[in-house]
Amino acid sequence: MIFYTLFHSSLNLNAEITRFADREFYRDFWNSGTITYFWRTWNIPVHRWAVRHVYKPMVGNGYSRLYASGAVFLISAFFHEYLVSVPLNMFRLWAFNGMLAQIPLSFVTDKIIGGGRAGNIVVWLSLILGQPMAILMYVHDWYLIHYPVQTST
């Protein structure tokens, strides 16, 4: 419901109001057979920005595609952590590590599993288990900071 309301309805409404020509905010990420395909289809404006401003310039300057992809995920990991840490006023690296964990997971779905249905299951397990786990870790740490454990004497 939150995804539909935020990413589909509100973004498309905003695009209609502002007469934004490109209304493609995401593609068929739910059919992703690999983590790589998921990240290419999940958030199209961010993906295009990362390709244009990080990936292509690095490849054009002689870096390998692997290093350029790693740099994109490192920058994305930084911004994910920043967007969580600032509002919560605590720095824990859960979102950062979760984003960096996508790199070996993409290797698993690309090279070992080879995509398909099994890869799609891994993508959905990452979405269903990975993101809520990171959120719970922030909730846990926030609770410990604001309500420390009292020892009885």
Rank of each mutant, 00 (worst) to 15 (best):
P132R: 03
S85Q: 04
L100E: 08
A134M: 14
L93S: 02
V86E: 11
L125Q: 05
M90S: 07
G119T: 00
I103G: 03
A101C: 14
P104S: 10
D110N: 13
L129A: 12
I113M: 00
V123A: 04
L105N: 07
F91L: 14
I113R: 04
I121S: 01
S85Y: 01
R117N: 12
L105V: 14
N97R: 10
Q102V: 08
T109Y: 02
N97P: 08
G116A: 03
W94P: 04
V84A: 14
A101E: 08
S85I: 05
A134S: 13
G115L: 03
G115N: 07
K111Q: 15
V86K: 13
Q131W: 15
W94K: 01
R117F: 14
G116N: 07
L129D: 02
I112Q: 09
V84P: 01
M90Y: 05
I121G: 05
V122R: 07
P87V: 05
L105F: 11
V86T: 10
L93C: 10
L127W: 09
I135K: 01
H140T: 08
I121Y: 04
D110Y: 03
S85N: 10
Y138W: 01
A101T: 02
L125H: 05
L100H: 02
H140K: 12
P132M: 07
M90Q: 12
D110K: 00
S126R: 05
S126M: 11
